[in-house]
Amino acid sequence: MMKKNLKNLMMLSLVAGTLSMTSCRDSGDKNDEPAEPMQNEMHQEQEMEMDHSSSQNKMKNYQDEAMSAEFKDENTATAYELYVDIKDALVNTKAEIAKTKAQELSEAKTSEKITAAAKKIASSDDVNKQREAFSDLTGAMEKQLESALASGEIYKQYCPMAFEGKGDYWFSNSKDIYNPYYGDKMLKCGRVDATIR
Score class of each variant (00 low, 15 high):
8 N>E: 10
8 N>D: 10
8 N>Y: 05
8 N>P: 01
8 N>F: 05
9 L>T: 00
10 M>V: 09
10 M>C: 05
10 M>K: 15
10 M>E: 14
12 L>R: 12
12 L>Q: 13
12 L>W: 11
12 L>A: 14
12 L>P: 01
13 S>H: 04
13 S>D: 05
13 S>P: 00
15 V>Q: 02
15 V>C: 03
15 V>S: 03
16 A>C: 10
16 A>Q: 05
16 A>N: 05
16 A>T: 12
17 G>W: 01
17 G>S: 10
17 G>N: 06
18 T>A: 13
18 T>F: 13
19 L>W: 03
20 S>M: 13
21 M>V: 15
21 M>S: 13
21 M>G: 10
21 M>D: 06
23 S>G: 01
23 S>A: 06
23 S>K: 05
23 S>N: 05
23 S>D: 04
23 S>F: 07
23 S>H: 01
24 C>V: 15
24 C>I: 15
25 R>D: 07
25 R>M: 10
25 R>Y: 08
25 R>L: 10
27 S>M: 08
28 G>I: 14
28 G>E: 11
28 G>A: 12
28 G>H: 11
28 G>F: 12
29 D>P: 00
31 N>I: 02
31 N>C: 00
31 N>K: 04
32 D>C: 04
32 D>A: 09
32 D>L: 07
35 A>I: 03
36 E>F: 03
36 E>R: 02
36 E>H: 02
37 P>R: 04
38 M>P: 00
38 M>W: 02
38 M>F: 07
38 M>K: 01
39 Q>S: 03
39 Q>N: 00
39 Q>T: 12
39 Q>G: 04
39 Q>W: 00
40 N>T: 11
40 N>V: 08
41 E>W: 05
42 M>L: 07
43 H>M: 05
44 Q>L: 03
44 Q>E: 07
44 Q>N: 08
44 Q>I: 04
44 Q>C: 03
45 E>Q: 14
46 Q>C: 04
46 Q>G: 06
46 Q>V: 13
48 M>Y: 02
50 M>G: 00
50 M>Y: 02
51 D>P: 01
51 D>E: 10
51 D>R: 07
52 H>Y: 09
52 H>F: 12
52 H>A: 13
53 S>W: 00
53 S>A: 13
53 S>T: 14
53 S>I: 14
53 S>E: 08
54 S>A: 07
55 S>D: 02
55 S>F: 09
55 S>A: 06
55 S>P: 00
55 S>N: 04
55 S>I: 11
57 N>A: 15
57 N>V: 15
57 N>R: 15
58 K>D: 06
58 K>V: 13
59 M>C: 03
60 K>C: 02
60 K>R: 13
60 K>A: 14
61 N>A: 05
61 N>C: 00
61 N>P: 01
62 Y>D: 04
63 Q>M: 11
63 Q>V: 12
63 Q>N: 08
64 D>W: 11
64 D>M: 14
65 E>N: 05
66 A>P: 04
66 A>L: 13
66 A>D: 10
67 M>D: 10
67 M>T: 15
67 M>C: 15
67 M>W: 06
